[in-house]
Design a protein around this nucleic acid. Structure first.
Lengths: 249, 249
DNA sequence: GTCATTATTTGACAAGATGTCAAAAAAATT
DNA sequence: AATTTTTTTGACATCTTGTCAAATAATGAC
């Protein structure tokens, strides 16, 4: 039944093993301390074998990235299917993004490393293509919601802004927020009590600014949030252990 | 008159030379291809001498960062002194940030490298302290404007958001936007015509969402923008060659 | 079952980087 | 001019990544 031969399955299993070890090392010691030797050693293979799977160190990185992005995509698709108006769906997207960041704490750092310092042009064209395509898919999922909202007249964007551009802006906020949290500035002691909650408030203000109906002042989005938690991401919440509870406080 | 001896001046000059070469190499070849050997070679000193100035490669990076941050701080201070209401000042801050990003295109990448992958704990405590302090200064400059606006009743923030938190949110948008532009996604072909203009529109929408007076619908902020260009940053604009012209298009 | 052929795995090796340090060179002092 | 102090040097040790000929294992023919 299985279309893969025994050999192929073995190779795939080993590939996954290498990636797993790579991720563990990356999370514990950081990218600079991640060595192909150590992956080989921990997997009980030789370095040469590891290099048959990944033509360079960066390739490990981008494949881990792709794995996490695939997860983000699926979370977004689930969020987009949330029952509610478009603004509620957007909130589900926002939540999915926060959840994802909590589940994959190292991915932000990986993206940084990957995108900075001419790292990208060492990876395989295939992986790079996959990576870019996933970014596109993810953006388009969100842009679809915005377009739908326009069609349903829940929002009317000024001429200077189109749906993709709005997504770019919202994405900037989320992405930048996560990034700033990843730098270890003493946000707390500076007076930022709960960064995630702030980003949500900012996003809501932005949508209010565009007069996206229903406004946050005329609708109970707190209730929406609870529905999102229950209806969309109950499993993940349970797994990661009260992610959002912290933020409600 | 000079408090520095000849020797001290020589050392300082050499330090600056090394940093200069470091920046050039960084911008042309990226961080991974930046080598202490090459700095030494180009400066016509030996590697050992370079290591007397920077105890590690990362130290070069953070000192370049600090240099750029100092510039950002001074630009922000000039923006904060702009003649106008607090929202106009905030717009001047926004403009200063965009301008700075254009003048120091490599700093975003440097921050990425610096903050990711356990790089930060290799640099000297002194530099790290200076770096953090500058971040604080910069944030506080902006938070001061927000606080003043509250005092002047130009805006009233909800209880869930304090001034520093609002700054964190706005900063997230700017920072994330620059970051996303630095990754080389095909933003253009995705439909994002002018990323910087989008970020400005988003920021304005956010402030509108908080009912920050005067709203963008009841005030000519385009005129403000022109005043900012003329009154605050004419020199820099001239130097970098019509930065903002592009964005107006 | 044996041998030949093909595929896979290996680890020694080259190349290049960071960071160290004893010795050489230069400068200052006596 | 001799001596002490400071500064500079580049050879080393060490740790990377990435390669590749040779060793090993798997496959298939007869």
């Amino acid at each position: 039944m299985n279309t893969l031969s025994r050999k192929q399955r073995e190779v795939a299993a080993r590939h996954a093993l290498f990636l797993d070890i790579g991720r563990r090392l990356l999370e514990s010691d950081g990218y600079t301390n991640l060595g192909m030797d150590r992956i080989a050693e921990l997997a009980e293979y030789s370095k040469g074998t590891v290099y048959q799977h990944f033509n360079c160190k960066e390739e490990v990185l981008i494949q881990l990235c792709i794995h996490d992005q695939l997860h983000l995509k699926s979370l977004f698709q689930r969020a987009a299917a949330f029952e509610g108006n478009q603004r509620e769906k957007l909130m589900a997207i926002f939540f999915a993004n926060s959840l994802w960041a909590e589940i994959h704490p190292s991915c932000m750092e990986m993206m940084q490393t990957l995108c900075g310092g001419g790292t990208k042009d060492k990876v395989s064209a295939e992986s790079l293509e996959k990576h870019n395509q996933l970014d596109l898919d993810i953006i388009n999922t969100v842009a679809g919601i915005v377009s739908e909202a326009i069609k349903l007249q829940e929002v009317q964007l000024p001429e200077s802004i189109n749906p993709v551009e709005l997504v770019f802006g919202l994405w900037s906020t989320c992405h930048g927020g996560l990034q700033l949290q990843a730098y270890d500035l003493p946000l707390q002691s500076m007076g930022v009590r709960n960064p995630s909650a702030v980003l949500l408030a900012i996003t809501n203000a932005t949508l209010d600014g565009f007069q996206w109906k229903p406004l946050s002042t005329e609708f109970d989005y707190t209730a929406t949030m609870e529905r999102i938690v229950d209806e969309c991401f109950a499993d993940e919440i349970a797994e990661t252990g009260m992610v959002w509870a912290k933020q409600a406080t």
